[in-house]
């Protein structure tokens, strides 16, 4: 059996707290470090180890065995200096992979120079996602495959309702491939309330019908997907 992935999270703001929590739920061994006692107390029941310590001190990091971790995430949100210093220390200690959160592009450039293997801009990325969502409210989610191609989840256009994939001839007409159809199946819960559960039809067949309320996960060029949304 493969051993659990060991991941350290330094800085437990909203970003660090949530990433530590989710990684722990996904069965990773998580070590969380923060200088704030209250934050350590909040997360201590949810992850493997939570330690109140100053991560800008090399001896502290060594004592915690941080260099043995598979990945170290630097999520320090207050002050660029601390996050840069910690990233530099981690690099010098030979940490295999360092992921660091940047507050702005200058911060990102410095983090790259001092040795971060991956830099993330949560605020910028979220802003871009929100902007896309506001411009195209029909788009529920998307993954960029290349500068031209995307996988996008959209609400099924009204003109598709009640038709099969064959009837619509999606690939020939729009040049996109339907990877999955997400359906909402009405149910009654044990307590007697109405509700629905989501059922995903992966790789649908030509005879599969698209119904009201369905979402389609499609792969294609950006322009063709844009055309599809308009219909």
């Amino acid at each position: 059996m493969a051993s659990k992935k060991q991941i350290a999270v330094i800085g437990l703001g909203t970003f660090g707290y949530n990433i530590a929590k989710v990684l722990s739920q996904k069965k990773c061994e998580v070590l969380a470090i923060d200088i704030n006692e209250e934050r350590i107390r909040e997360i201590s029941g949810l992850i493997t180890h939570a330690v109140q310590a100053n991560a800008t001190e090399e001896k502290t990091l060594r004592a915690l065995g941080i260099e043995k971790m598979d990945v170290v995430i630097v999520g320090i949100g207050t002050g660029m200096e601390a996050s840069i210093l910690v990233t530099l220390l981690l690099k010098e200690m030979g940490v295999k992979k360092i992921v660091a959160k940047a507050l702005n592009s200058l911060h990102g450039k410095i983090l790259r120079k001092v040795g971060a293997d991956r830099i993330i801009f949560p605020e910028r990325d979220m802003a871009l996602k929100l902007a896309e969502g506001l411009i195209s409210p029909n788009i529920l989610d998307q993954i960029e495959l290349s500068s031209d191609y995307r996988i996008v989840e959209i609400h099924a256009p009204q003109s598709f309702i009640g038709k099969t994939i064959r009837d619509i001839d999606i690939r020939a007409k729009y040049g996109v491939t339907v990877i999955a159809i997400k359906k909402k199946q009405p149910i009654v819960t044990k307590s007697g309330e109405t509700d629905f559960k989501e059922v995903v039809n992966i790789s649908p067949q030509p005879e599969d019908e698209i119904n009201e309320g369905d979402s389609l996960v499609v792969l294609g060029k950006i322009e063709t997907i844009t055309q599809l949304k308009k219909d």
Binding site: H155, A156, K184, P186, T194
Partner: peptide, 12 residues
């Protein structure tokens, strides 16, 4: 109202 909400959500 709850049931109306569920139907509207089911219709996206």
């Amino acid at each position: 109202f709850y049931n109306l909400g569920i139907v509207y959500e089911a219709k996206n």
